[in-house]
Design a protein around this nucleic acid. Structure first.
Lengths: 245, 245
DNA sequence: CGCTGGTTTGAAGGTCGTCAAGAAGGGTGG
DNA sequence: CCACCCTTCTTGACGACCTTCAAACCAGCG
């Protein structure tokens, strides 16, 4: 059933692929590159970009402000595309950085277009995943605009749990989380100090705990209620109970 | 030079079109529909969606929260696509509403795909505009996360000025702005009351004034500096001084 | 053992939200 | 023409959430 490849696994919830289609996706990811933690894969304003599929590790997209501030737009986990959109723009509108050491596959424009011709169903699945990523970004925007710090934090952790479970990187209640509180606060639009206090509150209420680069969801129901979480934006019909690790 | 059609005008900054290509875009928008102010064009969760090109009037994309709150994701002005992305998702991840009375053209999936086959350059231009819209959303996200109320407000007004000028709906220093302070606050992630205070401050400093559904930019340079505004995310190389109305 | 990156806590202050209510404008009908 | 409505804008007082500043604590590591 579940493929060992994160991208195949993710796209499979959009369409069931033939052997040829699966192989095409495998070929797309044949060549691998490594990026060390902390390095930029794409830098804002850069031209002549490449797109990537993240194979192993975590990355994130972000933007810097004139005053030195940073806003993380989205975390990227195995199976996610990076920079696909910016192929169309003259310059990339934001940056991508490796959060941990990463293994990625570069996707050239040429290969991508030929894929769309030869395997339109795979092309459609890729477009679907891009659309889904945008829906995730929109959900972050809504959180920053209209959810308070606690709700927002809970929401992000629940979202990541669902996304990770889909590619086999989370169990029902926990997952690896190589994100320190500085990074987390830049994603949540908070200061690291306040993020810390929020995490403590969530921990003290026995809802979630973040310890040693790992997230433990202790009371998912209450957390969902607190966050006002509705996984609809992930467009994954798969019920939670059927996606065990 | 500038076409009277907003979409053609906007896409022209991405590619120069042949007569046949321009005509194809005109045909795409041949059929028109009207929506009264306040009605929804697409509702969140709706399936079997249609996409639209906005011809006249203003619209906005938004999401509602369980507690009744609303976050406006983006304002839509003539020449903008709406709902293109959600064609790929099973259900629309957010809603679109007409802000004023609107004239739109529906874009069927069938027509869109045939357009991509017959006029790939036009198709590329459309994808470019979708990518640009996403960059705008990302910029809003950054604003909500890392800019304070004054910067955020200034930034949004500058962005709208640039977008409107591109389709001939703004002069160097002013534009029609049919957005009341309730709507504006839902876009900025503020309360209407605080939005009012911020607008007063900007007015008192002679930076911008919003009066009678119209925005007057009094001191663009200072406003740009205050907002930390960099139009790069709009991906429009056209210098400001060359886009007079 | 001291350094470094990360987490945790306290105290004080500012931005922004909440509650409450008044003023201004535009349309409608007497 | 004016009274009356509605929507929108505006202002004040107070409090909460979150930030800022400052510093202690902890674990891993050379």
């Amino acid at each position: 059933m579940g493929s060992r490849n994160a991208l195949v696994r993710k796209l499979s919830i959009f369409a069931r692929f033939s052997a040829a289609e699966t192989e095409c996706l495998t070929r797309l990811q044949a060549v691998r590159e490594h990026f060390a933690a902390g390095t930029d894969l794409v830098h804002e304003g850069q031209t002549g970009h490449r797109a990537f599929v993240l194979q192993e590790g975590w990355a994130f997209s972000y933007k810097l402000l004139p005053d030195g501030g940073r806003q993380i737009i989205n975390f990227k986990i195995p199976g996610d595309f990076m920079g696909l959109r910016s192929i169309l723009l003259r310059t990339s509108d934001h940056s991508f950085a490796a959060l941990t050491d990463c293994v990625v596959s570069a996707v050239s424009v040429k290969r991508a277009t030929s894929l769309f011709n030869d395997f339109p169903r795979v092309g459609a699945a890729i477009l679907w995943s891009v659309a889904r990523d945008e829906a995730v970004v929109v959900e972050h925007l809504v959180g920053l605009g209209r959810r308070d710090a606690k709700e927002r934090t809970a929401h992000l952790l629940l979202e990541l749990a669902d996304r990770l479970r889909l590619v086999g990187l989370a169990t029902e209640s926990e997952f690896e989380f190589p994100v320190n509180q500085y990074l987390l606060s830049d994603a949540l639009g908070l200061t690291a100090i306040h993020t810390n206090r929020v995490l403590r509150q969530l921990r003290e209420k026995s809802l979630v705990a973040v310890r040693h680069n790992r997230v433990f969801i202790d009371d998912r129901n209450s957390l969902v209620k607190l966050a006002g979480y509705d996984a609809g934006f992930l467009d994954q019909a798969t019920p939670l109970t059927q996606v065990g690790a």
